[in-house]
Amino acid sequence: MIGAIDTVLHAPARLQIAAVLARVDEVEFATLRDIIEVSDSVLSKHLSALGEAGYVTLRKAAQDGRQRTWAAFTPKGARAFRAHLAALQALVDSAQAALG
């Protein structure tokens, strides 16, 4: 893919996580897992990768006697997703333009 594509966000599951985070202020782990339709371990792995890249913040909070994890985009993550989305759209548009 072209250079503007963000390799951190390239994996389909990470792109779906980013799509949710871009539309909410904060989302709980189990809710995100249900929307993305992946297992706990897969979601955990991708959230860790996004966290290491500085794209996502994770927060633990007690609820109903259980520790729950909440995820939110950092400003850096939100900017990266917008740029990635623009790069994807540019690719699709260039293909359509080539078709005339």
Partner: peptide, 23 residues
């Protein structure tokens, strides 16, 4: 191709947003 991948990625994003809207 890159373009196929981009199209698939955009479709994934739309499907995810639709699932979010149902909530």
């Amino acid at each position: 191709t890159q373009i196929d991948e981009a199209r698939a990625a955009m479709a994934d994003i739309r499907a995810t947003e639709q699932r979010l809207s149902q909530r």
